[in-house]
Nucleic acid binder design. Structure first.
Lengths: 160, 160
DNA sequence: CCAGGTTAGTTACAATTGTAACTATAATCC
DNA sequence: GGATTATAGTTACAATTGTAACTAACCTGG
C-alpha cells in the first residue's frame, strides 16, 4: 500500500500486440530482405513490384502502389532501380501519356521465377509447426485485424 | 497451354505471410505513432523505452535494448530525447561507471500513466471483433511464429 | 600493475524512407 | 477552345534508421 498505487493498468511491452506484430514483422522482413539482396540484388520494395507485375503485367505505377501498399514515391524509386537493371520495361499508355505501362522483361520474369521458391519455402518453414487448422484460423484472423486496423485509423484522431 | 507455362508456383503478394505481417504491423504502428506524437511528443522508440522503464526501473541501456528489441544505437537516441525532455533520469552504476542506471522521473511516469489507457484501448478495439478463443489462439500462434522466425534466421544463410 | 582485449554507450556517416514541391499531361467547365 | 483544376509520376529536401568507428571504463593474464 505504499507503492505508486495509481489506478493505471499495467502494460507490459512483451504482451502488447502492436509491439509483438512489429517485432515479428521485423524479424521476418530482415531475414527475407537479406536473402533477396544477397541472391538477387533486390530490395523489398523492388521485390514487391516484381511480384505484382509478374501476376498482373501492364499496370500503371499508381496501381502498383495500391497493390503493394506502398506510396507512389516508393514505387517510383523501386521502378527506377528495376528499369535501370533491365528487369522492368516502362512504356507510356497510348490513351494517357502521363500513365506508364509496366511489364517485366525476360530478366525480370527470370528473377521472379527464381525468387518465388525461396519465398514460399521460407513461408512454409515459418508455418511448419502449426497445424493446418491453426494456419487457416491465423490467416482469417490476420485478414480481420487488417480490415479492423484500417477502419480504426489514427488513434484518437479528431473526427472532423 | 500457350502461356509461360513454367513449373514455378504462383506467389500472390496479398496471400504472402511476410507481406501481410508487414502491412498490418505498419498500419498499426502508424496509427499509434501518430497518437503518441500528437498527444505526448513521443516517438515509438521512446515509448518503448518508457514502457520498459515503467515496469523495470534501474535497467542499463543494454538491458533496455534487449527488452525493447531495439539496437543500442536506437536506445541511445531515444534516451537522449527522453533525458532532454526530463522524462528519464540517467545515473551511473556505482560498481561499473560505464553502465547507466535508468529510471523514469515523475514526468516520465506521468507520461506512462497517461499513454497506457490509449494504448490498451487501441489494442482492445483492434481485437474487439475476435472471439476470446480466437484471441488466445492468435496470441499463441504469434508467440510460436516469433520463436520460429528467430530460429530460421536469414534465409538461405550459409551454415558456417 | 600494465598490455591486450572486452564491454557500455556515443558520435559520425551512409542509406533508406517520408514529405513537399514540382513538371507534364489530361479533364472540366464556362 | 482557353483558363482552371486534377492526376501521374519525379525530383528535392528533411527526418529516420542502420552501420561503423570511436571513447571511456573495466577485466584478465603474465
Amino acid at each position: 500500500m505504499s507503492e505508486t498505487a495509481s489506478a493505471v493498468p499495467a502494460l507490459d511491452l512483451e504482451h502488447f500486440l502492436p509491439y509483438r506484430l512489429s517485432v515479428l514483422s521485423n524479424t521476418v522482413s530482415t531475414a527475407l530482405a537479406g536473402a533477396y539482396a544477397r541472391r538477387f540484388g533486390l530490395s523489398i520494395p523492388q521485390w514487391r513490384v516484381i511480384a505484382v507485375l509478374a501476376r498482373a503485367p501492364g499496370l500503371s505505377a499508381a496501381t502498383v502502389a495500391e497493390r503493394t501498399a506502398m506510396d507512389k514515391v516508393a514505387v517510383s524509386r523501386a521502378l527506377a532501380g528495376l528499369v535501370r537493371s533491365g528487369r522492368v520495361r516502362r512504356a507510356l499508355a497510348r490513351s494517357d501519356r502521363r500513365r506508364s505501362v509496366l511489364t517485366l522483361t525476360a530478366r525480370g520474369r527470370d528473377v521472379y521465377t527464381r525468387i518465388v521458391p525461396y519465398a514460399l519455402e521460407y513461408e512454409r518453414r515459418l508455418l511448419s509447426e502449426l497445424a493446418p487448422s491453426e494456419q487457416s484460423l491465423f490467416n482469417i484472423v490476420l485478414t480481420r485485424l487488417q480490415r479492423r486496423a484500417g477502419l480504426l485509423g489514427p488513434v484518437g484522431a479528431a473526427r472532423v
